[in-house]
């Protein structure tokens, strides 16, 4: 668990401030606005947003998006913050 936390969270992933990092990255043009990435994801799964985190993974910024479907399934998808491409998820969802 400790290992997972260390591996999963980038050093500066303080949830209080990741939105500021996101804003700076957006200003620098490194990522696309969240709402532009979120809309196709919500539409594709018919799900509602629960939580979003911005992480640094293998040198790129990735949005880890947690969603809930109308029938109550919760799942996460990773989205490349720069391109909007959905990343293969290991957390199920089956899509």
């Amino acid at each position: 668990m400790l290992l997972g936390a260390v591996a999963g969270l980038p050093a500066a992933a303080d949830p209080e401030y990741d939105h500021n990092r996101a804003q700076r990255a957006l200003e620098r043009g490194e990522i696309r606005p969240l709402h532009a990435l979120l809309a196709p994801v919500e539409q594709r799964f018919g799900a509602r947003l629960l939580e979003v985190e911005l992480r640094q993974e293998r040198g790129r910024l990735v949005y880890e998006i947690k969603l809930i479907t109308p029938d109550g399934r919760i799942f996460e998808v990773g989205v490349d913050a720069a391109t909007g491409v959905m990343l293969p998820s290991d957390l199920g969802g089956g899509h």
Binding site: E16, H19, A22, Q23, L26, P33, L34, H35
Partner: peptide, 10 residues
């Protein structure tokens, strides 16, 4: 200063 809910928006 912004709330986290605004995310990357001002």
């Amino acid at each position: 200063l912004r709330s986290r809910s605004l995310w990357d928006y001002e």
